[in-house]
Write a protein that binds this DNA or RNA. Structure first.
Length: 355
DNA sequence: GATTCGTGGTC
DNA sequence: TGACCAAGAAT
């Protein structure tokens, strides 16, 4: 038996006894009985899990499939409702692409997800990792899905000291050589589970690892230091102003953001650009704007944001130059991205109630 | 290959 | 408390 086969067999045996119970899974027992999970649920979970923790996804996934149980239901949903449901999860291009993908599958593919990696990867929001993961998990095809977990596990198993991202090609071929012809779907999920529960980024629990005796990184005493990564750039601080306006009838002045770019397609407060030194702009409506003491701080992937908040009561017949009024009964802070929710909370904390 | 794109948890 | 990190994709 080759080293690779021994690793795969040991990992699969460990998975049979230790697989995590997750709402989008059917579990190893069902898999061995030939039962596959619903491709719709696999696809949705994989998209939600992109750069997002299982803990954050679990409840959101359940709410989502309760509301839209299949791809046809999702394809028929209004954009604004899907974006609102995604609010707080981040990386909102995922929600836009999710809906675009659902509509293609429902309209052009008879509601069936493609049963090949290439076919899947041709759809919006499905890249190399997600295509391979769906192919393996939903259809049990021998594809190799390489995510952050797999990169870490493989870098340690084979003591790959070259830093990412340069090591990506080598890690990819090492990972592909591990995929067994039998039960490739469970192998994929086993790699994830090992990476998430034992071979963790910090303080890996090598004592509990089924692959410890087969691990090159452990043998060299460097497992916990792998994979090596290039240092990240510092985050600049950007500034801006957000305007929280409320009409006499209680309606809030909000604005749908452009479909592309940061928070694209999401609802938010009108405001300035967010730059290192923003220009002083005109408010979205004529009113007595006053500053709320303090500021809202929020950190995005590549910059810190410090937002000043201005508030104003707007007259009943207000005709704003930007944005749209959302009636008080229809306004839910939970429909906003987190930074916008913080702005609303800051305005309220500053004593603003509107009329 | 390098950038852009969110958020909440963790140490 | 601030930096790091998580089942990446699109450009």
């Amino acid at each position: 038996m080759t080293h690779e086969r021994r690793i795969a067999a040991t990992l699969l045996a460990w998975y049979d006894a230790n697989a995590r119970d997750l709402p989008w899974r059917t579990g190893p027992d069902a898999a061995r009985a030939g039962l596959r999970p619903d491709p719709y649920r696999v696809w949705l979970s994989e998209v939600m899990l992109q750069q997002t923790t299982v803990a954050a996804v679990r409840d959101r996934f359940l709410r989502f499939v309760e509301r839209w149980p299949d791809v046809a239901a999702l394809a028929a949903a209004p954009d604004a409702e899907v974006m609102a449901e995604w609010a707080g999860l981040g990386y909102y291009a995922r929600a836009r692409n999710l809906l675009a993908c659902a509509r293609i599958v429902a309209r052009d593919l008879d509601g069936q997800f493609p049963r090949s990696r290439a076919g899947l990867q041709a759809l919006p929001g499905i890249g190399p990792y997600t295509a391979a993961a769906i192919a393996a998990i939903a259809f049990d095809l021998p594809e190799c899905a390489v995510d952050g977990n797999v990169e870490r596990v493989v870098a340690r198993l084979f003591a790959v000291a070259e830093p990412l991202p340069a090591a990506r090609a080598r890690i990819g071929s090492l990972a592909a050589a591990l995929v067994p012809g039998d039960r490739p779907g469970d192998h994929t999920q086993a790699m994830m589970d090992l990476g998430a529960t034992i071979c963790t980024p910090r303080n890996p629990d090598c004592d509990a690892c089924p692959l410890r005796a087969l691990c090159g990184g452990h043998a060299r005493g460097i497992a916990a230091d792998l994979p090596r990564k290039a240092p990240k750039a510092a985050k600049p601080v950007r500034r801006g102003i957000a305007y929280v306006g409320r009409r006499a009838d209680g309606a809030w002045l909000l604005e749908r953001r452009p479909a592309r770019g940061l928070l694209g397609g999401m609802l938010g407060w009108p405001g300035t650009e967010w730059t290192v030194s923003p220009a002083r702009p005109a408010p979205p409506a004529r009113a007595e704007w006053r500053a709320v003491p303090g500021e809202v701080r929020h950190t995005f992937t590549h910059f810190h944001l410090a937002l000043s908040v201005m508030v104003a009561e707007l007259p009943a017949g207000a005709n704003p130059e930007r944005g749209e009024f959302i009636a008080s009964d229809h306004f839910r802070p939970a429909d906003l991205p987190t930074v916008m929710r913080k702005v609303h909370a800051h305005a309220l904390a500053g004593g603003f109630e509107g009329h």
